[in-house]
Design a protein around this nucleic acid. Sequence first.
DNA 1: GTACCCCTGTGGTCTGACCACATGCGGTAC
DNA 2: GTACCGCATGTGGTCAGACCACAGGGGTAC
Lengths: 266, 266
Amino acid sequence: MTVMRTHERVLAQIEADLAAGRWALGERLPGERALAEEIGVSRASVREAVRILEAAGIVRTAVGSGPTAGAVVIDRPAAGLGTAVRLHVASGALPVSDVVATRVLLETWAMREAAERVRGGRVPGEVGGGARGDRARDRADDGSPLAGARRLLAEMEEPGVSSLDFIARDQDFHLEFARIAGNQLVEAFMLGLRGAIGAYVAEGVSRLPDWPTTSARLRTEHRAILEAVAAGDGPAAERLTREHIEGFYAEAGLAGGTKFTEAGCG
Amino acid sequence: MTVMRTHERVLAQIEADLAAGRWALGERLPGERALAEEIGVSRASVREAVRILEAAGIVRTAVGSGPTAGAVVIDRPAAGLGTAVRLHVASGALPVSDVVATRVLLETWAMREAAERVRGGRVPGEVGGGARGDRARDRADDGSPLAGARRLLAEMEEPGVSSLDFIARDQDFHLEFARIAGNQLVEAFMLGLRGAIGAYVAEGVSRLPDWPTTSARLRTEHRAILEAVAAGDGPAAERLTREHIEGFYAEAGLAGGTKFTEAGCG
DNA sequence: GTACCCCTGTGGTCTGACCACATGCGGTAC
DNA sequence: GTACCGCATGTGGTCAGACCACAGGGGTAC
C-alpha cells in the first residue's frame, strides 16, 4: 500500500464529498484557505487538487467576490476529455487518424440513434441533461425536435457565410444530433474530440482547392442527413453521415476515414 | 483576449515543446526548478501544470535520483479519460447508464473491426502502439493474432477461478480485441471507462444470484465471440458482443442505470 | 575487489506574504 | 428619499524560500 500524496488525498476527499452530494451543480466549494484548514493540508496542495478538477471540467474558478467567484461546480466533461486527447495528440503518441476514426464512429452512432429516437418519439427535452450550459440554445422551438438542426442548416445556407462560421455551424449541427441521441458521454466526447482536432480541421479547410464547391456539397449532404433522421431512417442516416465525414477528411487531406471504410461499419 | 494564467502559460509551453518533439516517450522533463527558471515563473505554477499533465496521463512523476526520477513522458491516455469520466460520474451529472451505453458502443465497434481485420490480415503487431506498458503482455505468440484472447479464455475456464479473477480476465479479453481493432483512442477510452465503472461492476457481480451459472454462460458467449472474430464475421461478432454485454448488465441489475446510481452514490 | 556511507538532485510539502480583482456595503451629495 | 461613489472584504493568482524524504552514484575505508 503506497501512501497517497497530499493533493491526491484532497482530491479523494472532494470526490467523496461530490459523490455524497455535498455540493450541487452551480454551488461553490469552500475557499481554498478554508478547504486547506478543513482537510489539514497546505493551500498549495489544495490548489493542485483544484487544478485537476478544473482540467477535468468539474469546477471552474474565478477571482473576485460574490456568488460567481470561487470554485463553482460545473459539468463540462468535454473539457477534460478534450484536454487529455489534445495533449496526447501533441505528444505524438496518438495519431490524428485514430482521433478522426473515433469521431466517425461516435457520429455515425449518434446519427443512427437520433433517427431511431425521432421515430420512437423519445427525444430528450431541451434541458433534460441538466445545467450543462455549454452554449446558449436559444433557438425558437417550433415543436419539432429537429428545429435546432434546421436553424443551423439555414444559417449554413445563407449567402456570404464565411468558412469559419460555416465550420462552426457544421460542428454544432453534428453536435445537435448527439444531444438528440441522448447520451451525455458521447456528446461530451464528440465535443472534446472536436476541440482536440479543431486546429487540424481548420488547417485542412485552408488547403481545400475550391471551398464554394465543397461547401455546396456539404450543404447537400447535411440536408440529406437531416431528412433521413426526420424520416426515422437510422441506417440511411448512419451511411450518409459516414460518407459525409470521410469525404470531408479525405478531401481535406486528413486520412482517417479510409481505415474505417475498409472496416465496413455500416 | 484574456490573459492566460501562469500555469496555463506553462502548460501551453510544455505542450508546444511536446508537439515539437523536444522530449520523446520515456524521456524526462527538466526539473521543476529548472523549468520554472526557464519559463520565468515560480515553481508552484510549474507544479500546477505538471499536475494537469500527470492527471491527463502525459507524464508520471517520481522522487529520488537517477533515470527513473523526475517527470517522465509516458503515454497513458486511458488515465486522463478515466479520471474525467469517473469524476463526472461522482458529481452525479453523468449517469452510469450513459457510461454503460458508451461502453457497449465502443466494444461492439471494436469487435466488428477486429473481425474485419482478422479476415483481412491487418492485425497490428504486439508493440505497434508504442511503450504503453499498461500490463505485461507476455503470452506466448503462436502466430495467431488471437493467441492472447485464447489464452485469456482458457484462464477463465480453469476450474476454481475466483469471480474477481474472472472479471479481470473478462475485461482483458475485451480489451484484447480493442487492441486488435488498432485504434489507440478507442482502446484507451474503453480502458478509462472500465476504470471509471469498475467499482460499480464489482458491486453488481456481488449481487448476482448464481455466479456459477452466470459465469458458465459468459464463457459460452466469449467462445462464440472469439470464433466469430476468428471467422472474420464482423456482424456476428458485433451482435454477440452486444447481447453479451447488455445481458450481463441486465442480470447484474445495472441496465436501468438510475437504480444503480442510487446504490453507488447514496 | 567489495561494502559502506555521504553527497547530490529530485519531487513533496509547508509557510507566509503580496497582488489583482469583483462584489457589496455604507457613507455622502443632492 | 434617491443616486452615486469609494473603500472594506474575501476570493483566487502568484511568488519566494525553506525543509523533508527519497533514490542513486561516487568516493572511501577495508
